[in-house]
Every structure is written in C-alpha cells, then in structure tokens.
C-alpha cells in the first residue's frame, strides 16, 4: 500500500465512526466550498467602481475595499494627510516586531517605545514641524486601535505590579485595597468601565476641567487592564520559591531592594507570555471603544458601510476588518506560545 493511502486509512478511516465522520464532513465541504469559491473569487467584483458594479457581478464585492479601505483604516482623519497615520502605524508595527526579538530586550527598548509614542503623537496631532494640527476627535481606524492597546498595556503594567505586590503584602489594609480593586474591576464588564470613563469622568473632575474623549477611553482601558495584568503578575510572584525571599532577607536587602533585584526580575520573566496574551485581549477589547463613540478600526469599518448603497456588502467589509485583527492576534498568540516554550527550555 502506498504512503498516502496508508496515511488516509490511519487518519481518515481509522474506524467505522471515523469513516462516517470523514464522509459527512466531505459532504458538508462539498456543499459549502464550491459556492464559497464562486462567491469569493469567480463571481467577485474586483477593482475600483461603484456599488452598481458589485450588483452586476453578483459575487463578493471586493470593490468595496478598493473604494473604502482608507476610510476603514484611518477613519475620518483628513484624507490628504493619511500618510501620517500610515507612517505612525508602520512605526508601531516595526517596533512590535523588534520587541519580539529576545536579543532586543535591553533597557534601550523602553526608551525606543517612549520615543515611538512621542513620534506617534507628533505625527497624529501635528502642529509641529509644519504638520497641520488634527484634533483627536478626527483620529480613527487602526492607529487609534493600536495606540489605545499599546498605551493601555504600558501604563497598566507598573500599576499592575504595585497591585500584585499589594495583594501579596503582609499588611492587611494594603492587601484589602489591592484585592478590592482587582476583584471589583474583574467582576464588572469592560463596557461598564468604558461607560463610566466616558460619562462619569467629566463629573469626577473639578468644574471647568475637561478631559479628551480618547484619553477617557484610554484611562478606562488602562484601569481595566491593570486588574487582569495584576493577576498575571501575581501568578509569577507565586511561582518564585519562598527560599528566594528568605535568601534576600538574610542578606539584609530589605523589601523594596529584594523585590527590585531578586523577585521581580525572576517573576516578570515568567509572566511575559501571559502579558502578551493580555495584550492580545486588550487589542481585541479596544474594539469596545466603538460603543462609547470613538472611531477605532471596527467603528471606522462600520462607518464605511453606512452608505446604503454599500450596506449589502457588509460581510466583505467586516471580513477585511476581521482579517486585520486576525493577523495581529494570531501572530502574537503564536509568538506567545513559542516564547513560553523557549523561556522554559532556556531557563538556566
């Protein structure tokens, strides 16, 4: 028997039940795949044009993407300035790629990120170097999604370390405050937190002080993310053997020095994969700012479909947006899995 045949026998027709399953699945695929190919490729409408063109073609309307992709990616940012958000996004993606490399985990990477955020702000806001100023209310699309996700994680991280240390502290009041915060936030839906941020923050501030809408959403995301990150960090702290704490104590290092020099360097190494996973969640969750009226990637895609003439082709539009989210999240989750294995093997 040839190799492919014996493979099929083992993996597709191993038992009567398995054979039945294979046949049923093949039948289902036969029902689904040809029409799908027909829709997506053969009958699809490609290239520039108007909705009429899509109706004539009958299949998928990729014309929608040709016509509207810039609105989807950059929202209502001034059309002739789109190179700025494009450059800002490219900068973030490049830096994400660099950060994935373990050899680059040096102090300068933090500085690079700080610089990148500043360049991002300069590009998006303008008002410097002869760039026309653009209000945050006009920011939208992928750059908004990226900046909220990145900043939420970055700002939440130090806060989450304090929360995690607080939760493991021997001082009861500090432990109570940390546990209270973490459990309160984790028990509440993100939508509520974002509503609170968008509706209640203006009430929280002294009269006359206003807070930018994007900043409100960012603060909401940060407060929310911090509670989940704190649990990840706590997991890392718990994995450190008690002997490490005792050895540090016996050397007379004191609480903060032993945390900074001995415990956190080991614990944080362990929690890098969970932090990457939290970043993925945060990236996906950023789509919820749609609900409080920001034009992130999802809202911008939705807005691009608002035109009644294009609305019938919502599947194509959302598929494209989904693909962008998928690419980011899928690669990051693969990376996190690889990293987890790599760190475990390389653990000296």
């Amino acid at each position: 028997m040839s190799r492919p045949l014996s493979w099929a026998k083992a993996n597709l027709f191993g038992s009567p039940a398995s054979s039945l399953l294979t046949v049923l699945t093949l039948a289902l695929l036969w029902q689904v795949v040809p029409p799908l190919v027909d829709w997506a490729l053969i009958g699809a409408s490609w290239g520039a044009g108007d909705p009429e063109r899509c109706r004539a073609a009958g299949g998928a309307c990729w014309t929608l993407l040709t016509e509207r992709h810039r609105l989807m990616l950059f929202g209502v940012y001034p059309y002739d300035q789109h190179w700025r958000p494009a450059l800002a996004v490219a900068l973030f993606i490049a830096l994400l790629a660099i950060s994935a490399n373990r050899r680059c985990w040096k102090p300068w990477l933090g500085g690079a990120w700080a610089l990148a955020v500043m360049i991002f702000a300069a590009l998006m806001w303008g008002g410097v170097l002869g760039l026309a100023p653009v209000e945050t209310s006009q920011w939208g699309g992928l750059p908004l999604t990226l900046v909220i996700a990145v900043l939420a994680i970055a700002v939440a991280f130090p806060f989450s370390i304090l929360l995690a240390l607080g939760r493991r502290s021997g001082l009861p009041a500090i432990r109570a405050v940390s546990v209270g915060y973490i459990e309160l936030v984790r028990g509440v839906p993100l939508v509520s937190v974002l509503f609170m941020a968008s509706v209640m923050f203006p009430l929280f501030l002294p009269e006359g002080m206003t807070i930018d809408k994007v900043l409100r959403a960012l603060v909401g995301m940060t407060l929310f993310t911090a509670a989940y990150l704190a649990e990840a960090v706590r997991g890392g702290l718990q994995a450190i053997p008690r002997g490490q704490f005792e050895a540090a104590d016996a050397l007379g290092l004191g609480y903060w020095r032993s945390m900074r020099l001995i415990i956190l360097p080991q614990a944080l190494r362990l929690v890098i994969p969970p932090i990457v996973n939290q970043f993925i969640t945060c990236f996906k969750d950023t789509s919820l700012v749609t609900i409080v009226g920001l034009y992130d990637l999802l809202a911008a895609s939705k807005a691009a479909l608002n035109d009644p003439a294009w609305r019938p082709y919502f599947v194509e539009g959302y598929l494209a947006a989904a693909l962008v989210y998928f690419c980011f999240c899928f690669f990051m989750s693969r990376y996190s899995q690889w990293l987890e294995r790599d760190l475990r093997q390389g653990n000296r």
Partner: peptide, 26 residues
Amino acid sequence: GNWLVGRLSTVYIESIRNVPLLLQLF
C-alpha cells in the same frame, strides 16, 4: 483521531478566537 475533523476544529478555534466579539456580533 480523524485528521479532517481535527483540522477543521483548529481552523474554527483560531479564526474565531482572534477576531473581536463585537465585530462578530455586527
């Protein structure tokens, strides 16, 4: 043990997990 079914499940899991729920709801 069925390769085809296993593969399809993987595709399902990966594609659903990595796309925001809100987008799927829309």
